[in-house]
């Protein structure tokens, strides 16, 4: 189990219909590549976030495969068009099988 894993998301609370907004996400995670050796000379097993997705009202916005070369605390910033009020759902998938989730509601006015 990876330690101190905590997802964070920044989404505007309101938007105009059809507006393109910027979403920022960050998850604290050590992203151990599996290439490094520990003090005992043995390989430290790989432990990374391997997939990140964002959905809006059930529709997929972004789906990312992460590889071991990505550094610690992976950060994603992307744009999304908001057609109506609803909820963004963010999901991170860990090598150890853990799934971390966060949601943010947005109101179209």
């Amino acid at each position: 189990m990876a330690e101190d894993v905590k997802p964070r998301v920044k989404v505007p609370k309101t938007a105009a219909a059809g507006e393109v907004i910027t979403i920022k996400t960050l998850i604290s995670h050590q992203m151990e590549s599996g290439q490094r050796k520990g003090k005992d000379g043995n390989l430290i097993p790989r432990s990374i976030i391997n997939r990140f997705t964002c959905d809006f009202n059930g529709e997929n916005v972004i789906d990312v495969v992460l590889e071991p070369a990505i550094s610690t605390n992976p950060y994603f910033e992307f744009d999304a068009k908001v057609p109506a009020s609803g909820e963004f759902k963010f999901t991170w998938y860990d090598d150890d099988g853990s799934v971390y989730e966060d949601t943010k509601a947005i109101t179209v006015n």
């Binding site: 905590k6 964070r8 920022k24 960050l26 604290s28 605390n73 950060y75």
Partner: peptide
């Protein structure tokens, strides 16, 4: 602060 990774230490 959201973009500053040093703030992760502050949160901890």
């Amino acid at each position: 602060d959201f973009d500053n990774p040093g703030m992760l230490g502050v949160e901890a």
